[in-house]
Amino acid sequence: MKRSWEIIKKMGLGAIPILQLRESLFQESQLTQNYLILSLGSCLIATLGLIINSAAVIIGAMIIAPLMLPLRGFSFATLEGDIELLRRSFNAIFIGTFLSIVCSWIVGLIVSIPEFGGEILSRTQPTLIDLLIAIFAGGVSGYAKIRPSVGDAIPGTAIAVALMPPLCVVGLALAQGEWQIASGAGLLYLTNLIGINLACVIIYFLGGYAKSNELARTLSWGVSLILIMLLAIPLGISFWQLISKAKIHDSIEEILVTRSLVNRRDVKVFNVSINWRKQPPVVLVKVRSVDPIEPNEVKIVETRLKNELEHSFEVIFEVTPTQIIKTSDQDK
């Protein structure tokens, strides 16, 4: 073990002395006025961006959000057994998290969103892919910390792992009493936290910042790995459900486009979407048609989907009237 540790230390990624790294992380993990104002500002921007369904506004909020800074300090503290740094970083993470949820909750109560957009709903079903993104982004963030020359990578990792938007979704969902959406967004935030923590611990270890005896005494490895395994169960189930829903969507689209209303050549399907939050799921079909679609024709489609997919769906057609005009009509 000792020989292996010496090899790792010689080939380590570390670029700055351990005391300098600790001091820098100590400063970043303090609960300062700047930290609180940036957290509040980022939360407000992200919340409003989620409400208007604007990806550009949300990305701007991700860059401002300072939550990544104390999280790196928390990882270092668990690896080194540094109680003071652990306390400071934990307080900053907890208060930043609590402040963001409360702030977005208040905005949600004031605005009272009638319907959640795609930017909100996309953050309510975390999968194993999100965990991998958090691990890789956390690794890059940790590497950028021990290699100040690549510090420009921090904004990119903040955008990739997106700590603030899930918190804002939690607040907005709680304001509307949507507990399922809130729990899904909360799981995504927890996934990001654990993934980043594990990745940073690994980077600090490979950088030679942990002594072998300290590493043996710390529980950070065991705790992180246990949490990752516990997360893998719901994330794996969610990933499998996501794949299943995608397959069903493709099947429904194929049925509607190639076989639905076969005697109606005037009907052209141009968009199919499924609202899985409803029971039964609602299939919204946007079509262009010369003549109206009758309720009995919709019933035929619902029956066909149930027979072929062995699942009940409510089908709603949104019809855009069209008019066919030919040059030959001019002669009539």
Rank of each mutant, 00 (worst) to 15 (best):
I59W: 03
E318C: 01
P281F: 04
S220G: 12
E254M: 12
H311F: 04
F76L: 11
I110C: 11
A46E: 15
V140R: 00
T322M: 13
G96P: 06
V301W: 02
T47S: 09
P234I: 12
V102T: 13
L86W: 06
K145W: 01
P292N: 02
P66M: 07
S328Q: 13
S54N: 14
S4R: 02
L187M: 14
N53P: 04
A137K: 01
S220D: 14
T157Y: 01
N213T: 13
S149L: 02
N192D: 08
S29T: 07
A65P: 01
C168Y: 09
R265N: 04
P295M: 09
D331P: 00
G117N: 10
A175T: 05
H249L: 14
W105L: 15
Q330S: 14
F205C: 08
A160R: 02
I293D: 12
E310T: 12
I58M: 10
C200F: 00
Q279V: 11
V282G: 03
D266C: 04
L231F: 13
I196S: 01
K278S: 10
Q279S: 14
A246Q: 15
L50W: 02
I129M: 03
S260W: 02
E302S: 07
L48M: 10
Q125P: 02
S149V: 03
F270A: 04
I316F: 03
I37P: 08
K211A: 12
F94V: 15
V223E: 01
C103F: 05
P148Q: 08
I16Y: 06
D130T: 06
G184W: 09
F94Q: 07
K286I: 00
L187G: 05
Q33F: 11
T191L: 01
V201E: 08
I52E: 11
E178K: 09
V170M: 15
S54M: 05
N91F: 05
K10Q: 13
G96E: 03
H311D: 00
D130M: 04
A144V: 03
L48F: 15
V107N: 10
P292V: 04
D291F: 14
Q20K: 08
A199S: 10
K326C: 00
V262M: 01
G41D: 06
A175W: 03
L44Q: 03
Q323Y: 12
A56N: 11
L198W: 08
T127L: 04
A185H: 10
F116A: 08
S104C: 09
